[in-house]
C-alpha cells in the first residue's frame, strides 16, 4: 500500500513563507547581459537618429494651416464645378472593387488554405501553398498595385488584381491556421466512419471554421475598401484616384469630403461585421 494520505507530522513553521516567480532567463549572468544589451541598443539608436526639433516646431503652423484648408468640406472645386458625381462614382467603383476582390480572393484562398494546413495536406502540397501565401504576404497592397498597374495599365482592374492577391495572403493564412487548431476528436470521428476526404472536410472541418471565416471575410471587405483608396493613388482606380486628383489640384475641401465618406463607409462596415459575427456564432 503506497502512502496516499498527507503527512501531517511536520510543523507548519518548517516551510518557507516566501515565494518568487522563477525568472524567465534562469542564468543570472546571461539575464543581466541581455538587459545591458537592450539598454545599449536603445541608447545607440537614439544617438544615431537625427531629430531636428526646430524644424518640427516650425512645421506646426504650416500643418495647422494645411488642416484648416480642409474645412469646410465641400463638393464644389476651385473652378466652381460641382464634383459630387465624380466622388459618388469613385466611391461606387471602390465598393465594387472591394467586393469583387474579396469574393475572388476568398474563392482562391479556400483551396490554398486547405493545402497550407499541416493536418490536411501532404508535405509537398503544404510547402507549395505556404509558399504562395508567404509570397503574397511579402508585398503590401501598394507594391502589388504598382506591379499590377505596370502589367495591366491604369484603372480599376489593376487595383482589383492587387487587392485580390492581398486577400489571398490574408485569408488563406488565417484559414489554414484555423484549420490546424480544429478539435482532433471530431475529425477522427468523421474519418472513422469511412468518409472520403471531401466529405471529411465538409462534415468535420467546415463547421468548425465557418463562423470565424464569415467574420473574417467581412473584416477583409472592410480592409479592401480602405486599401482601394491607397491603390487608387498609385493608379489602381476607385476613390483613391479621385482623392489623388483633388490633392493635386489643391482642392483640399474636396479631399476632406472624400476622406469623410471613406470614414463613414468603413465605420458602417465595422458595425455590420461585428453584428454579423455575433449572429453566426
Amino acid at each position: 500500500m503506497s502512502g496516499s494520505s498527507f503527512d501531517t507530522s511536520k510543523p507548519s513553521g518548517s516551510f518557507p513563507d516566501t515565494w518568487k516567480k522563477p525568472p524567465f532567463i534562469k542564468n543570472k549572468t546571461l539575464r543581466w547581459l541581455v538587459y545591458l544589451a537592450v539598454i545599449l541598443y536603445f541608447a545607440a539608436a537614439f544617438g544615431t537618429m537625427d531629430i531636428n526639433w526646430t524644424r518640427a516646431y516650425e512645421g506646426l503652423p504650416r500643418g495647422a494651416e494645411f488642416i484648416a484648408s480642409f474645412f469646410p468640406p465641400t463638393m464644389i472645386d476651385s473652378n466652381g464645378v460641382d464634383v459630387s458625381g465624380t466622388i459618388v462614382e469613385g466611391i461606387l467603383e471602390s465598393i465594387w472593387m472591394a467586393i469583387v476582390a474579396t469574393v475572388a480572393g476568398i474563392i482562391l484562398s479556400v483551396p490554398i488554405g486547405l493545402g497550407a494546413s499541416r493536418n490536411l495536406a501532404p508535405t509537398p502540397v503544404y510547402l507549395f501553398c505556404r509558399g504562395i501565401i508567404a509570397s503574397s504576404r511579402t508585398f503590401p497592397e501598394v507594391i502589388l498595385a504598382i506591379f499590377a498597374v505596370k502589367l495591366f495599365g491604369f484603372g480599376s482592374f489593376a487595383g482589383l488584381v492587387a487587392l485580390s492577391i492581398g486577400t489571398i495572403g490574408f485569408f488563406a493564412k488565417l484559414l489554414a491556421e484555423d484549420i490546424e487548431i480544429t478539435a482532433k476528436s471530431p475529425n477522427e470521428a468523421i474519418e472513422s466512419t469511412g468518409a472520403g476526404w471531401f466529405q471529411w472536410v465538409n462534415y468535420a472541418i467546415q463547421p468548425q471554421v465557418l463562423p470565424r471565416m464569415i467574420g473574417l471575410s467581412v473584416y477583409r471587405l472592410d480592409i479592401n475598401f480602405r486599401e482601394s483608396a491607397v491603390v487608387g493613388i498609385v493608379g489602381g482606380g476607385g476613390i483613391g484616384a479621385t482623392l489623388k486628383t483633388s490633392f493635386e489640384r489643391y482642392d483640399f475641401s474636396i479631399s476632406a469630403t472624400i476622406l469623410l465618406s471613406i470614414i463613414i463607409i468603413v465605420m458602417m462596415l465595422e458595425y455590420s461585421s461585428g453584428y454579423l459575427r455575433k449572429w453566426v456564432q
Binding site: P186, I190, P207, Q208, L210
Partner: peptide, 13 residues
Amino acid sequence: GMIFQEYALVERL
C-alpha cells in the same frame, strides 16, 4: 463503429 471519450460530435452540426 467508433465511440469516443469526449463524444467527438461536430458541435456546430
